[in-house]
């Protein structure tokens, strides 16, 4: 209370001196809630906590950032909650690719990512197409040719048919005429044991999941799922395009959005905050440890980026015969 009172009186003094506070003077005064759509520990939650950790370690803000888990319906409950906080300057959300996908295919997901206030895209998560180390497939072409010769014989482990790994399958299947099914497992651990046990033939693994599977010689990478080569991936592994398949790479972007109609001063503050965050040593260490790629996009660029991602996702879903609602 004392702090709050001091802050208030300081603010009054400031207003008295300058008439109105300048835009740059806006600061979150208390706790900032960061909404994530997963439970503690899962992808988006881990990312949110890592970002907050960077802000705290580098002392970039005096406000306290607290993760709030709004699970339910993929991203549906989280994004609807953000929409209900219209005009709130002390709430943020962490989006992932399913914030776009769910809106397109789920009846109850009535809020689009584009209707929220864009703050900053922070990373793209690159991935690797993996096979077991003793697999006979030495390149992506070997695999796809085999899947063409004997349709539905090879299998890919994945999660939901809406995930990024599944999107990549839909696009590759549609563009090459090869055919292989996606076997859905709810957790990454089950997917991994399915491929290590030889029960499926391939999987798409996010950079942060790769761990020491490559260096220990358990798995082998056929291609990098990224537009450009990723520095933390082995240099001799080609990108999908370099491997001879000129397809659009489905992205796994992660970043920050805010409720609709957030005040421009607040939005500006957060954009600058996250722009500062991605330049710090703590962030660079995070990027290296988890093999993600920094991709900072803010403001109007981010708004149009959301539009492009939505269009591309819609096209990929349609090619996989998944009903698109919007």
């Amino acid at each position: 209370m004392m702090l709050l009172k001091k802050g208030m009186s300081a603010l009054f003094a400031l207003c008295a001196t300058f008439g109105v506070a300048h835009a740059e003077d806006w600061k979150p005064r208390h706790v900032v809630n960061v909404i994530v759509h997963t439970g503690p520990g899962a992808g988006a939650d881990a990312f949110a906590r890592a970002v907050i950790n960077v802000i705290e370690q580098e002392k970039l803000s005096t406000a306290r950032f607290v993760v709030v888990n709004k699970t339910g319906g993929g991203s549906t409950n989280a994004i609807n909650y953000l929409a209900s906080k219209e005009g709130d300057d002390n709430t943020l959300g962490v989006y992932a690719s399913n914030w776009t996908t769910d809106y397109l295919v789920q009846k109850d997901a009535t809020t689009s990512l584009q209707s929220l206030t864009p703050i900053a895209n922070m990373i793209f998560e690159p991935a690797l197409i993996m096979v077991r180390a003793d697999s006979k497939f030495k390149s992506l072409k070997d695999f796809i040719d085999a899947a063409k010769a004997e349709p539905n014989k090879l299998k890919q482990a994945g999660g939901t048919p809406l995930g990024r790994d599944a999107m990549l399958r839909h696009i590759l299947v549609a563009s090459t005429g090869a055919q292989w099914p996606l076997v859905s497992f709810p957790s990454g651990g089950e997917r991994l044991s399915a491929i290590l046990g030889g029960h499926v033939d391939t999987l798409v693994m996010d950079g942060s999941e790769v761990g020491d599977f490559l260096s220990s010689g358990k798995l082998r990478a056929l291609a990098q799922v990224s537009d450009e080569k990723v520095p933390t991936f082995p240099a001799d592994v080609p990108t999908v395009r370099e491997a001879g398949y000129d397809i659009r790479i489905p992205l796994q972007p992660r970043g920050i959005v805010a409720p609709p109609k957030m005040s421009p001063e607040a939005a500006d503050y957060y954009r600058k905050l996250f722009a500062k965050a991605v330049e710090t040593p703590a962030w660079k260490k995070y990027v290296e440890d988890t093999r993600v790629q920094t991709n900072f996009i803010a403001g109007d660029d981010l708004a149009s980026f959301f539009g492009t991602v939505a269009d591309n996702t819609r096209a990929a879903l349609k090619s996989a015969d998944i009903p698109v609602l919007r």
Binding site: G41, S187, G188, G189, S193, G211
Partner: peptide, 22 residues
């Protein structure tokens, strides 16, 4: 093997990764 079977072990594993242990 680096394979977490449930949510608790998945978080324990992500803790190890955060500390730079693979």
């Amino acid at each position: 093997l680096g394979i977490p079977g449930g949510s608790s072990t998945a978080i324990l594993m992500s803790a190890l990764v955060l500390w730079g242990v693979r």
